[in-house]
Design a protein around this nucleic acid. Structure first.
Lengths: 191, 191
DNA sequence: ACCCAAGTAGAACAAGCAGTCTACCATGGC
DNA sequence: GCCATGGTAGACTGCTTGTTCTACTTGGGT
């Protein structure tokens, strides 16, 4: 990837993530990155295309981090627990590479686009789906029955989502750790 | 409350909620409501003040609905279950008075404001805190030990939050019903 | 040494923004 | 009948937005 193009994506992501997409103008991105405006429009045909590029880039960064956590353990149960410790690290800014915690970039972005069929929202939806599948994969390692696996994986996903929102909106940065008692129960007991 | 002022708040809320705050201009609100721009600025000193008014109004509407669900049942356990059926109704647009489901107005709004100390975000935080307390109140009706009550109430709140986000971002409109198996377990079993 | 292509800076553009202003109109007390 | 008051419409301001344009610099191939 072109070095200027990547710089633009990184700069835009950082500004969009911490201030909201509609609050950040092209001029600010150009100024902050030091890249010429014409060059920006050479690489991206519009602001929307740049937004989509930041979503794709963030998806890459996030999934890389997410998968490395899940795959750092041998058993599915350990992976799920590691996930919540990982979230706790994220909320408390102990994860380099994900920027200062400002909630989920995909939830935040979806909130700024009214139309559920917009490209940006489709991209957010896709990302969430991917993450849910990764969780389900780990849960299926220790729960065989399909419907039980479904329920547990779903619960884990929703708790994770709730923790992210609670941490960012309420400032409840202990949210991930507060999930642990419940998570332990649902992954250790049979239905 | 002045009839024009209320109309402005209602119109602004409807537009902000379905399109995002930064995507809606003052002119659009004025046009849609049929109220003069001068009158708007007579009642609200700035757009931000109007935003704050919509948050307050939505908080009123939402809490009214929320409390009516929780208080419709005799026991705490029934109230918690009713809550998730209520959420399901909301996600599937069977609740008149909350507009077409577009996620949580407070989560959406918080996402548009970078500064966590902004008045808007404080208002969102306050709302979430209020809702969490209402849930905790019901949980304390059937769990006596303080720390157990805390954990269960927290889990319910996070599941609720996760369900709202999943329903709006992923379009997972069955999210509330999918919580039921887990909710049933944690409110019926002892620790 | 020359040329072409790609990238540079930043001025310029139309459109839209939040917010202000003037001029007008309706109503109610005297 | 007349004035005062408070709400009305909507033109206007100054600024910012996303996007385009012109003019210039740079580096590599021949």
């Amino acid at each position: 990837m072109n070095v200027k193009k990547l710089l633009l994506i990184k700069t835009a992501l950082q500004l969009f993530y911490s201030n909201g997409i509609n609050s950040v103008g092209i001029n600010e991105i150009v100024k902050e990155s030091g890249v010429a405006k014409k060059t920006l429009y050479h690489h991206f045909s519009s602001k929307e295309q740049l937004v989509l590029a930041t979503l794709k880039y963030r998806d890459h960064l996030f999934c890389q981090w997410f998968e490395s956590i899940l795959n750092s353990k041998k058993t599915g149960k350990e992976s799920i627990l590691a996930l919540f410790y990982g979230l706790d690290n994220w909320f408390n800014n102990r994860v380099a590479g994900l920027d200062e915690f400002k909630g989920c970039y995909f939830i935040n972005t979806a909130a700024e686009y009214g139309d559920p069929n917009s490209l940006a929202r489709r991209s957010c939806k896709e990302h969430k789906h991917k993450i849910s599948l990764l969780i389900k994969e780990k849960v299926s390692m220790f729960i065989n029955k399909t419907d039980e696996c479904e329920v547990v994986a779903n619960t884990i996903s929703l708790l994770k989502e709730g923790a992210i929102v609670s941490a960012s909106v309420e400032g409840n940065i202990d949210a991930a750790l507060k999930c642990l008692p419940t998570v332990l129960r649902i992954i250790n007991e049979d239905y």
